[in-house]
């Protein structure tokens, strides 16, 4: 039942991915700018230049180029990055875990903070507590993640130097880990010194990404909590003798979560988009900073590979979202 549903959704996403692939391939090639020209050393002869173009397959027509690229891509080969001369697939896979861990931590912080603010605001509805919560969410929402990141660097990196402002781990420490999922691997292998170090590097970028999202979650969740608290079942639960905290957390929260989950899904894709900038600000070695460098250097094979990677991430987030509705609402389980 569940497996079939997942399989169906994955099959449905194939045309989307194919569309994205064709579109980026064409767009990237149609626009002006010649990546190879940037690499040609001064005084190179024409034959050498032609060899260079041939090496990246740029001497063929767009449709030929696409067929070659697609054929290789199906086999997991996305070509060679023009600037770093590494295989695109390997490059992306070496950077992807850092971004996935960052996004996961950021999403976790955002949800925890957002839910906490919504619950507190609901508990003190109509009192000073609600005004404070509304003020904080308004402020979190007004300031974009870019500015939060910079403010954190100034405050917690320079004025009170508590946290590292760049990188992912202390480079002087040999990690000896076998995957790039440094956070998870160091945790499960009891290398908690490394875990702490990675978390310290992640703290500022993750919270910067999380604050605007937390505020958005708090707003939507608080308004649907208010609606749920007016429902008869919430009143009945209070008459039964349960405290407001209990009614909010054990009764209303789950029903109020559904609109919030659908918002969070869309916003988590934006969070993934936001990593591009935040990783650049914090020199964090993920696919976001890789993407910016690729765009600035017009590294075509890398740009294509990255856009497809982002597309796959977005599709998976939406799939996870879809499945979580059924977990939240028993009415959707058989249908």
């Amino acid at each position: 039942m569940l497996a079939r549903r997942i399989l169906l959704r994955l099959l449905q996403s194939i045309p989307t991915l194919a569309g994205v692939a064709v579109l980026t391939f064409v767009l990237v090639r149609v626009v002006p700018g010649d990546p190879v020209a940037m690499m040609i050393p001064p005084g190179a002869d024409d034959a050498a230049v032609a060899r260079l173009y041939a090496m990246y397959g740029l001497d063929k027509t767009i449709s030929q180029q696409f067929l070659i690229w697609a054929g290789q891509a199906l086999g997991g080969n996305f070509g060679i990055s023009i600037t770093t001369r590494q295989a695109v697939t390997g490059l992306i896979f070496s950077r992807l875990p850092a971004t996935l861990e960052l996004v996961t931590v950021a999403a976790f912080v955002a949800v925890a903070l957002g839910v906490a603010m919504a619950v507190i605001g609901t508990r003190f509805a109509g009192r000073a507590g609600e005004v404070v919560v509304d003020g904080i969410t308004g402020f979190f929402l007004a300031v974009p993640d870019f500015l939060w990141g910079l403010a954190f660097i100034v405050v917690f990196g320079v004025l009170l130097p508590l946290l590292p402002i760049s990188g992912r781990a202390d480079p002087t420490q040999a990690s000896g880990l076998s995957t790039e999922f440094t956070l998870i691997e160091s945790f499960v292998r009891f290398r908690w010194g490394i875990t702490t170090d990675v978390l310290a590097h992640m703290a500022m970028p993750a919270v910067a990404l999380a604050l605007p999202l937390a505020a958005m979650i708090a707003r939507v969740l608080k308004s649907s909590l208010a609606e749920q608290m007016g429902q008869d079942y919430a009143l009945l639960s209070r008459v039964k003798g349960f405290s407001r905290w209990h009614v909010i957390l054990a009764e209303a929260l789950r029903n109020a979560a559904i609109p919030t989950v659908s918002l969070t899904g869309v916003q988590v894709t934006f969070l993934v988009g936001g990593t591009v900038l935040i990783e650049k600000i914090f020199s964090y070695p993920g696919i976001g900073s890789l993407a910016i460098d690729a765009v600035i250097n017009r590294d075509l094979p890398l740009i294509q590979g990255l856009i497809l990677t982002f597309a796959v991430i977005f599709i998976l987030i939406n799939l996870a979202l879809d499945l979580s509705y059924a977990a939240l609402d028993p009415r959707l389980r058989h249908g």
Partner: peptide, 17 residues
């Protein structure tokens, strides 16, 4: 609106110069 705006703006400017 289903695209992350920051990513989109960087790609757009990279495309149009």
């Amino acid at each position: 609106s289903s695209f992350p705006p920051v990513l989109l703006s960087i790609i757009l400017v990279a495309l149009i110069g």
